[in-house]
Design a binder for these strands. Structure first.
Lengths: 118, 118
DNA sequence: GTTCTGTTTAGACGTACGTCGAACCATCGG
DNA sequence: CCGATGGTTCGACGTACGTCTAAACAGAAC
């Protein structure tokens, strides 16, 4: 990948025709790929599943870190990826930051990928 | 990721409880992440959309390469990733190899990710 | 057989990614 | 204000990834 990856805003749900609706433009493919990449890591998949189990209250970094057996710095990094892809949202409550899943974003990604969707 | 990634067979459709069904085991998360990673590249997303537009006959490497403006070697590499994730299947016809999409695999991946699925 | 076309593999290069410890920031409680 | 706790950012390290050219491989036609 010699050419630097374009910087694209991925904080909102993905919005373009589904994969199966026809040949995608490079821009749309990039948007989809960036969001997929945000989820394409075992730790982040696991974090998402944990957050989806607690959609209301959310979970803070200090509780997530021991659950995946990684440093808080690393978990914070992963949460940032998820946040920048709009898959997660963090809100501060005192000293803690509680992360909650954004199911709409995940749903939108899912619909774009769905081969039955067009 | 200091520890080498385990080698996992991903040629079949993903098979585990959906993300939203509960907290995932690390193994399941790995299987999901590996398949997502196979699709988490703009070129591969675009290739998938092209193949989905021609599900019956398939498309050969020499026709895909100019469409994404990359060398045949690079496209072959991407197709290998998709093949190893079970998202695509290639069959030789003479000197050409025609690649066809495997919608079941994509569908399975989609269902695992779907936040409404559990 | 040889040659030609299409495909994959091998090797090399630069970039991106996941991880950590340490430093820095934010908020609460004395 | 000060310290303590939770969170993020920074810098560094090793690995993985995308791309290319060149070489090896597979069929088809001669």
């Amino acid at each position: 990948m010699p050419k630097a990856l374009p910087t694209v805003d991925t904080t909102g749900p993905v919005c373009c025709a589904p994969l199966a609706a026809g040949v995608l433009a490079a821009d749309d493919a990039l948007g989809i790929a960036l969001r997929l990449k945000a989820l394409a890591d075992p730790v982040r998949v696991q974090l998402m599943s944990m957050l989806l189990a607690e959609p209301e209250t959310g979970i803070c970094t200090c509780d997530l870190a021991p659950a995946v057996d990684l440093s808080e710095a690393t978990v914070s990094h992963h949460l940032k990826q998820l946040r920048e892809a709009g898959l997660v949202e963090g809100t501060r409550k005192g000293t803690n930051v509680y992360y909650r899943p954004q199911p709409e974003a995940l749903d939108a990604l899912c619909r774009v990928i769905d081969p039955r969707c067009r």
